[in-house]
Simulated scan of single mutants.
Amino acid sequence: MSLVKFNGNGNRPSLLDEFMGRDMDELFNFNWPGVTRSRVGATVPAVNIKEDADRYSIELAAPGMRKEDFNLTLDNGKLTVSSQQHYQNEEKDQNGQYTKREFSYHAFSRSFWLPETCDQQQIEARYTDGILHIVLPKKEEAKQKAPTQIQIS
């Protein structure tokens, strides 16, 4: 059983949705030469997912953030990683008038359906060197057992 990407609308994506949605989105959101088109707030951190004998591991690339910036929630087998940030920079002249005022917002959300073999009570997360590491241990019955020799009677 593997982790399943969640598209945010309450349904698991179909193969057609995955293929057409991603390809069509990339086609229409491509930054064509000479066209200044910004995708503000559309950046979602890249994710690596791997499985070994004892656990699933998720690595989410989010450099420049702090561990306090993340929100992890688990709801009925769906793990959601989200963040919302607001930055504001103001420069005023001697009269208190704005000479420059910049602000920006950044938010993302990624969700994953967890397999039944995951021990949802033992999930751990840590943020180091720009990467959020999430460890999803497997239940004891789902871990691979060493082969045993069966005696013939």
Rank of each mutant, 00 (worst) to 15 (best):
W113K: 10
R39G: 15
K100L: 13
V135W: 09
Y127K: 02
H106W: 15
N29W: 10
A53G: 07
M1G: 12
N48L: 11
G41I: 05
T117E: 14
F112I: 07
N11K: 11
D54C: 06
C118K: 04
N9Q: 09
L15A: 15
E141S: 10
T99M: 11
Y87Q: 10
W32K: 12
L27M: 11
Y87E: 10
S153V: 12
E68Q: 12
G10T: 06
L72A: 04
I150E: 13
I49C: 07
R22E: 14
V81G: 05
G64R: 01
N76Q: 10
V135S: 14
L72G: 06
T73I: 05
N31K: 05
Q97F: 08
S82Q: 06
G64F: 08
G21N: 03
A61P: 00
M20R: 09
N29A: 05
S14A: 05
K138W: 04
R22I: 10
H86E: 10
V47Y: 01
K78E: 09
V44S: 07
S109K: 02
I150H: 11
I131G: 02
I131V: 13
Q120T: 13
H86G: 03
N29C: 05
F6M: 13
E68C: 04
H133N: 12
K50I: 00
K5H: 12
S2D: 06
S82K: 00
P137M: 04
D23H: 12
Q144V: 07
D75G: 04
R66T: 11
P147K: 01
L114Q: 06
A42N: 13
K92R: 10
G96C: 00
L136G: 03
A53N: 10
P63Q: 02
N29V: 00
Y105F: 13
E140G: 03
L136P: 08
P137D: 02
S2K: 09
E59K: 08
N89M: 08
K100A: 15
T148M: 14
D23F: 12
M20W: 15
Q88A: 14
F108R: 01
G21I: 00
R101G: 04
D54W: 06
A42V: 03
K5G: 09
R55I: 02
F19A: 15
L72P: 02
C118I: 10
